[in-house]
Amino acid sequence: METAVATTGTEGQKWGGGDAKPLNASYGKMMMWFFILSDALTFSGFLAAYGFSRFKFIEEWPIADEVFNHFPFLHGVDAPMFYVALMTFILIGSSVTMVLAVDAGHHMDKKKVSLYMLLTIIGGFIFVGSQAWEWANFINGEYGAVQTNGGKILQFVKVDDHKKRVGLDEFVTVGPRDAEFLGNSEGIWYESSGYQGTYTIEEVKNAFKANPDITIRTQQLIENPETGASEKLVLSREEALIKLEKDGKAVVEGANLTVNEYGAPLFADFFFFITGFHGFHVFSGVMINLVIFFNVLLGTYERRKSYEMVEKVGLYWHFVDLVWVFVFTFFYLV
């Protein structure tokens, strides 16, 4: 019956935890569980901080459907949530191949373990790539907006259809520039010469005055009295003219850590930080999976007569999926 005992390659090592198996779990597996517990607390710290900021700015938080509404090859089509749903399915799918690999490991089936590990790794890479695409869209932005003196965001919509957003490129004309733009190609990458964006605030203000069919949508969330749904407050044309003239400070295109055309800069900060930290977990998970995959191919676990390492890395991989389930809910759904 010697062969039935799981070996982990740590026998006789001081750091191996000895022969004792508290709670019927091997040393490595138990430590993986407690690592996951502490990592779960880290993520909940981030998500709870996100919830804190959101409750603090409950009346002006961006609506996720309007921020993440892109889908590959569907340009200009409003497709909220579909892309992130696809990403969720990719990650759940790679979780399934992982658990199938673990199951094949229990049957000491090297061929199946390597196949399923490979599929898991591919799924992981697709997910990380999808996240990069999502980031690129978010950073580049779509419509552009104006930032006020108080750091709030003003977006442009049609007067007759408040749901129809207007991009800066649709109504602002770029005026003459009296300064030469110096940038990367001049060897200056850390500073720039005066203006950075495509438009100046004066150009936007003048173009807004010249276009009577456009008005301003603020960051303020109001409740639609008929449906009870949350919507952004739209100013009348007169109010909008005064607001832009008095408070308009800078043009914002896209999102970064300091400004964010979709609304509160904090939203962008949390988005970058939490999905970035999760993406980093996925990436390191893929790397660890690769190491284990090569070990499977080399027959390391065949010789050890136990595929428990696959199980341990599987725990980590499922945890990454588990975190995504929560990120998905709190960033995209709620």
Partner: peptide, 20 residues
Amino acid sequence: GVFLIIYLIAILLVEGDYIY
């Protein structure tokens, strides 16, 4: 995990609402 997370969320959300 569940205990600590519920505790953290409850405290932070109440505090966030207060600041609002």
